[in-house]
Structure formats: C-alpha cells, structure tokens
Nucleic acid binder design. Sequence first.
DNA 1: CTCGAATGTGAACGCCCTGTGAACCTGTGG
DNA 2: CCACAGGTTCACAGGGCGTTCACATTCGAG
Lengths: 224, 224
Amino acid sequence: MVRPIAVFPSPTPELAQTLDLGGYKWTAVENELDSVRSEPEEGWFGAIIVIDDEIKDAWAICRSLRRRDANIPVILLVRGHLLDELNMRDELYDDFCLDPFHPRELEARLRHLLTLPTHEVRPEIVEQGTLTLNIETYEASIAGRPLDLTYMEYELLRFLASSPGKVFTREVLLNRVWGYEYYGGARTVDVHVRRLRSKLGEENANLIQTVRSVGYKFGTARWN
Amino acid sequence: MVRPIAVFPSPTPELAQTLDLGGYKWTAVENELDSVRSEPEEGWFGAIIVIDDEIKDAWAICRSLRRRDANIPVILLVRGHLLDELNMRDELYDDFCLDPFHPRELEARLRHLLTLPTHEVRPEIVEQGTLTLNIETYEASIAGRPLDLTYMEYELLRFLASSPGKVFTREVLLNRVWGYEYYGGARTVDVHVRRLRSKLGEENANLIQTVRSVGYKFGTARWN
DNA sequence: CTCGAATGTGAACGCCCTGTGAACCTGTGG
DNA sequence: CCACAGGTTCACAGGGCGTTCACATTCGAG
C-alpha cells in the first residue's frame, strides 16, 4: 500500500522503526488542522494517535478523522494510567495498544486492522474519471456503461488506473500484474493493452497512453 | 445485556473475575461442538478464545463461529510467544489481548467491541430479489416456488446471497462456509454450485455467476 | 525524406479453468 | 445387512482466453 498513515504526534524512534520495518509509509501530523491539510488526495491509510500529554488535541484529531471519513482505521497508543480516557469514546477509535508497546503486538494490530478489507464498509472502488472499478465484484464500467473484461484485462487496468499518470515499463507490468519474471513475452502486454483500448471504446481508448520506448501509463485524456 | 459470552477453554479465576466484575454473563465451552450446542437461541453475545495449549481446537471454534456469518465478536487471549499464530488468520477474530492481561485492558477491549452497535443481531430472513431464505426454518424459495436444498447447498447459498455481487474465491468459501483450512478440495465448491444452479431452475441459474480465475458471486451488478 | 526501431493489429495455437456425469465414502434408518 | 441421502473426489470434455507470431503502421532521429 502506498497511502501513508497519519501519526500524532511525531513518533518516537521505536514507533517509527516499527512502522518502517512493517513497510508502512507514514506522515507525522502536529494537530487537527495538520491532519486535514497533510491528508493526501487518496486519503489516509490509517492513523496512529498517541494518548499522552496532549490529550485534547489527540481526541480532536480522532473526531476530525471520523467526521471526514468514518472508515479510516484509527489505532490509539495509550499509557496504562490513561485507559479511562477511552471510556465513552468508543466510537472515536478502532483499536488501541498499551504504551510502551511490544513491537510485535503493534505490528499484529496494524496488520489486522489495515490489511483486512472486512472493516471497510464502503465497497473497495477505484475511480478515475468516468472509469469505475469495483474490487469486490470484479465489475468495471466507464461512463455508466459496463465493461466486459477478462481476468487479465481487469487486473492490468486496475494496476494502471491505481497509479494514474505513472509510466510502467512492460517488464514492470509483467512482474506486478502477471507476477512472474520477465521471460521474453513483452508483446503480451501490447496485445492486452490493445484489447483494453478497444473495449474502452473509441472515445476512451486514449485513457491508456503509450510512452514510446518506455511503456504505458493511465491518464485522463485532457486533449483529443 | 443478557446474552452470554462463550469462553474457551474454562476461564482462569482472573478471567472469570474480570468478566463477572464487568457484568457479563459467560459460558465455558470445551470444544467446537460445544460452542454450537451450548449456543443460546438468541446467539452468543461474543466469544473469548484463549490461544494457548489447544491451538487447533481454538481456531476450529473461531472458524465455526465465523461460519454462521452473524458477526459474533471474537476476542483472543494470546501469549506473547504465540503472536505469530495470528498471522494469516486475521479474518477469524476481531480483537486480541496479550495474556497475561491487565484486567483494565481486557475490560476496555470488551466494552469497545461489545457495546458498539456494529454487531447487529443475525437476520431472520435473507431476501435477494425473488429469492427468500428463512434462517429459522431452513427453508428457501424462489419466486414463490419452494426449493428443496440440502444443508450445504443452503449454507452456501445463504453465504453468497448475504453479500450480493461480491466475489468469493473457492478458498474463502471453503473457509467461511465449510469451515476448514483449504486443503485442495476446491472442486467441491464447483459441484455444489452446479447443483444449486440446477435446483434454482433454468431461468435463475445465472443468479450464481462464475468469475473466471477468481471464484463465484451471487447476483449481478449492484451499482446500476 | 529515409530508414530502422517500436508499436498496433489480426489471427491462430494451445493451455488451463470450469462444467458435468459418475463413482466413492460416510452416516442414518429400517 | 441393505437401502438411501448427502457430501466429496475423480476423470474427461469443451471452451474461454492468455500467449505468440507475422505483418502493417507509426514514430523519431539524422
């Protein structure tokens, strides 16, 4: 996952290390305003809020996150003597971990909360312009018109569309979408791109753009 | 709350005391079969499963609870050196607590998980289009015509129909409907799907749709 | 403009996924 | 002991679709 986790306040070295080792991207936020301003366009992946000195600020951020999008997973780090703070505020967080924490416990909680799609009430959907991909149902549609895609076409389109504008070489695509080492079938990508374009329709074929001598990218067409 | 919490295995004095002081009713269960047999008519309020000696039994109970997809909240009590057990089994529990536990931490987790209104009571009747499933009587009918389904056919149909449109892999279906680890009998799912389709009748056979290379789903597009 | 490399395009091959019928196994009731 | 129902596994056939190839077209450097 590329989306960052919001961390309040600036994490201790132990916390930063645990996040880094877990492969998570994170961004420190200093206050509620910051948690809004620093939020990336795709939204936070989750939030880790330390309940310690600045208790009021911490809860303010939680409320702010809940108000904006109830589905952002929130994990609290809380000192034992502050456990009572959680009482009557159950709706402001999803999980908590006693601080100081055991790295493996926090790791397990992060994995459980963040990698499990069950907690996401909203259907997992990728949207780019008029293109909509529903991860749960494996359905795709563009401008309301449903697309009948095969498995590989769907996977390729999803991969491209989830990083709009970014160029991928054929080799990278084979690795990430097909999942095996490059064996010499680079043209396979071309053919799938072609079928995708034809299924996207005349007016949307340029959603997948060729970058000559490099590869392909997904981009909303701004000129015709 | 009157519904009891299932506790596996028989709780230690500390655990029993924590539950009693929290005002929870609880029932000790000894094994998977017990967790089904002892379940009150209104269903369990939640479950506390200790991951310790009888690991396999513990997970079997979790799978069994998850099988009747009423969202029974499951909290694990796990020794630190067994944390790895949780890996890849995220769908089998909702929260965990390191054991030995601090009473106030467990108390907070119980309150957080059990008092939140996220866990609704299991539905008595599932209706999707012309399909009707009566949970109590195990009766199914489509367009008024009653269906004569076997137990597994009924469970499979109910699971699929309760998340219309969502695609499930054979592996997930074996886990959630059959309730065991995936050992290679994926074709079992195919055969049951085929029988379901034939019993649904010619005109409704497409209610269960094949998503090639992925799995099966119930119904068609949700978003149209 | 010319040429070579990169990409688009149509078609054909063949693997692997799924549907399907039937056998096998297990438990239950008579 | 047999008959039967229901669940699981197996073998085989058909077809979808991913891959590859040959050829056409386009692009860009010089």
